[in-house]
Design a binder for these strands. Structure first.
Lengths: 117, 117
DNA sequence: ACCACTAGCTAGCAAGACTGAATAGCGGCT
DNA sequence: AGCCGCTATTCAGTCTTGCTAGCTAGTGGT
């Protein structure tokens, strides 16, 4: 997997990915990073996620709550708010549009499910 | 469609889109821009495409030929070469990986079964 | 005291798309 | 001739975003 390529592709999409994670349940930066890495985005680092979360907060898409932790410094738990949900659904509209255009240009094999049907 | 969002998403993917267009047939910048705009990427402008083509050339992924035109200055016709083909297939591997990860995170409705050819 | 793990933050860099303009060639119109 | 519109390319400067490479802070174990 070409890392440089993935880095460039993540520009603009990482934001939606993180918002989607927050749509499932509130989470804090360290946790989100770990989740991303587990889910295959193995090169995403903490610094990137923290900076992204700050931007999301500044734009009013998430709410923040400081929660003390038994194992370290207090956590900043982020949760998606109403504006965030709205923004996220717009995000997915844009993403779906892009995926469709690219699908037209470069058809991918249909997922192996349409076999006999 | 949020323009800012699309702009960010295109980072990294526009390159592959243009390479894919060149894989179909050689083309020059002005032509490619027009094609993109027709195909739904309505905000992509000439300047962006020209800069991208220069990068592709510098990286040796495309060959260039200057062709005189009856309607204006000579065209710089770009065509995908061997290295470009190789690079493009790697590009799609990365793209497919990203799409799969995102699909896991945010399942999209299955497309209404497409009549294949 | 030192280390490891958890948790957050930041300055500076690199890459890529957009803005807005300039340049150049050709044909048609007045 | 002069001007406009379409074709065609280029470029400087701006903005956003992810990465690099550190740093700070809290807790517990050796």
């Amino acid at each position: 997997m070409n890392k440089q390529q993935m880095t460039e592709m993540l520009k603009g999409t990482l934001e939606g990915i993180v918002l989607e994670i927050l749509a499932t349940q509130p989470a804090y930066g360290y946790e989100i990073t770990a989740q991303l890495r587990e889910q295959g985005f193995s090169d995403v680092v903490e610094g990137t996620v923290y900076a992204l979360l700050v931007r999301l907060e500044r734009r009013g898409l998430v709410d923040v709550e400081k929660v003390p932790s038994a194992k370290g410094p207090p956590r900043k738990v982020y949760s998606l708010n109403g504006r965030g949900e709205e923004y996220l659904s717009g995000f997915w509209r844009t993403w779906d549009f892009l995926v469709e255009r690219i699908q037209q240009l470069h058809p991918r094999k249909e997922h192996p499910q349409e076999e006999g049907q």
